[in-house]
Design a binder for these strands. Structure first.
Lengths: 360, 360
DNA sequence: GAAGCTCTTGACACCGGTTTCCACTCCCTT
DNA sequence: AAGGGAGTGGAAACCGGTGTCAAGAGCTTC
């Protein structure tokens, strides 16, 4: 019979237990093995869910792990695995609310997985951009990265990631990559919904302010809007489409430009809420009342949409939900099902900034 | 003469070099040691800036390191050091712009240091809050943590950190801890400046909307404001001080409450910009023109301050700069000097929402 | 010329996990 | 009862660094 304890070591063992129990030291895999009366390899098998462990043994080990609140050291594990348990979010989106919501969503999806989120803002126009990204990933041996727009739309980055064999998820408004690397956030559908809303209210002369052309979403939003109008038999006059930059200031300027046109549009659809806020201001300066004289709508449903007067009719983007799904997809834990794509679809939120045009 | 190369190993060596040169493998400390003809321990000494390395040797090793673009593996290093090179930002501040600016500031301060930022939003009211924080820190063996308000104001957290021996920096509006653990963001001074501004414009009947009482900044802002008024011989009527919650909605409600008072205040100072935006809306509903009929001012100088009409006179808080200083203080690299405290002092930004009261 | 010093350097164990390799059970055939 | 395959667990090497400690080189000192 082999005794599961080594009598010779009993003194040492009690010392060890004392140190553990007093909390002076965190439990290691060796402690768990000793306490469970198995080898550390077996404990390792349990941690890594190897099927080659007898049910009874597994249960016993899991009990000890739970009792001592043991959690394997991510660094040691990472060292052996040649990869860390860190997930990087590489972004250049300038909107704080988008960034924070995305972070929250990613953390939602990572909760309980043992992964941690490392944030990495970047500047795509920097000459060292790709080098920086590569350095970041290789040094930290990232498990994977999440790319929100507009980094997600940069093929150089995708190529780099494929090259160095790093897992990644691209979040974009159109499928740019294989399905397993994409979370698509249908901006086009959102813009269509807004188009239908405006047409439904009876607007026919509608101004549109595009976002930054460097974001795919700008084109998708415009495209979706135009789709809806065309389908309803309303023409989007190119003369009423002006180029904005997703900022309040650009919205103000574009709003003034649109309001100066004759005949004046009865509604203006800005590519995001900030620009819509700018349009509201332009309307005020022009002495127009919203929505009586002019309907103004935005896109995103960020906080600003509710903090202006009147509160903006806009398209809600489920950023956090998208983030959650992206993280889940990246770590693809067992028991992972793809997640309901319907939840990533933007939807219309009607507030007080839109109404039917005045009868002339 | 001792040959610095081991002839016996030359075949192996060329294999190794081939793997390295082809980029199939990143350089390790052993490679650098071999290439420089020293032991890995000496390379380690150079990496860790040990003074016990001959100048000539150090230069040679550094040259090899630079040539091969070697960077030590943070996980292996962390394992040996018993701590990681991760810095945690544990926060519960609900304002996205604050959070993002703080993150950017922290990253500014960490740039080039080899540390990475791990974000960790939390809920102080959760029953498992302290447990979660402890788990987060111990599992990741964090180098240190940054605590912005209001987590920074929680003594339970500070006690926990001291208990487990984790470095930390608390960012708060008052010194709550030893100087080395604090970055103080003088809200009081900012509020004083605003008080002086309003008094300087000739206001004497001023409404004040406080922030959430769970934030120290709320009290500091009120206190600073009251200081300035008192100093100028103006009394802050407690009847004109109402309790807000740092949200747009609360600003709207409090604004309406204040505007309903007789006599009506000639100016309203909201504890942050969002509430000020709410007050603007209340004023509009009441048919008042800002600033002709009513001066409205805020605090923070977040984006919303410029995206409302009229743009808000407010107090700018150098959040990013504060973050940078906090990170620098935490990692206290050599060549670190304390940073200019003056840069953390908020300052007045005068826009169009404030003016002298109408002569009655 | 040997002892004593300081300055450099390297051998070796170790951080806490995983993997490889192998031996040893079981259990089922033949 | 012997043979063989699958399941199970231990010993040792390894991941890529750091700490400990002692030894070698070069210079003084007596």
């Amino acid at each position: 019979m082999t005794s599961s304890k080594t009598p010779k070591k009993s003194a040492d063992e009690s010392d060890v237990n004392a140190a553990l129990e007093s909390g002076r030291r965190r439990a290691t895999i060796n402690d768990i093995a000793r306490l469970a009366g198995v080898s550390k390899k077996t404990v390792s098998r349990v941690i890594n869910q190897s099927p080659f462990v007898r049910e009874e043994t597994r249960v016993r080990i899991e009990a000890v792990i739970a009792e001592w609140g043991y959690a394997p050291d991510p660094q040691a594990r990472g060292l052996a695995f040649r990869r860390s348990f860190l997930i990087g979010m590489i972004y250049d989106n300038p909107n704080p609310q988008y960034v924070v919501n995305m972070q929250l969503g990613l953390l939602d999806g990572m909760r309980g997985s043992g992964f941690e989120l490392v944030v990495h803002p970047c500047d795509r126009s920097s000459p060292t951009f790709l080098q920086d990204v590569r350095m970041f990933i290789e040094r930290q041996k990232l498990f994977g990265v999440i790319l929100p727009p507009s980094v997600s739309e940069d093929e150089r980055v995708a190529d780099l990631l494929r090259d160095i064999g790093c897992e990644y998820i691209r979040i974009a408004s159109v499928p740019l990559d294989e399905e397993e690397h994409m979370i698509v956030g249908h901006d086009r559908l959102g813009a269509q919904a807004m188009g239908e809303h405006l047409v439904g209210l009876g607007h026919e002369r509608i101004g549109f302010i595009t976002g930054l052309p460097s974001f795919r979403s700008s084109h998708e939003r415009r495209g979706g809007f135009e789709d809806a109008l065309t389908k309803a038999g309303v023409k989007l006059d190119p003369d009423y489409v002006v180029q904005g930059a997703y900022t309040f200031e650009s919205g103000l300027a574009c709003g003034e430009a649109l309001l100066a046109k004759t005949p004046r549009p009865t509604a203006i659809f800005a590519g995001n809420d900030e620009m819509a806020a700018g349009v509201l201001q332009a309307a005020r300066r022009a002495g127009l009342t919203v929505p009586a004289d002019l309907t103004v709508v935005g896109f995103d449903d960020f906080q600003i949409a509710q903090a202006v007067w009147p509160p903006l009719t806009t398209i809600h983007i489920p950023t956090r939900e998208v983030g959650r799904m992206a993280a889940e997809k990246l770590i693809a834990r067992d028991g992972y099902e793809p997640g309901d794509p319907a939840k990533t679809i933007p939807y219309l939120v009607v507030r007080e900034s839109s109404s039917s045009p005045k009868k002339v």
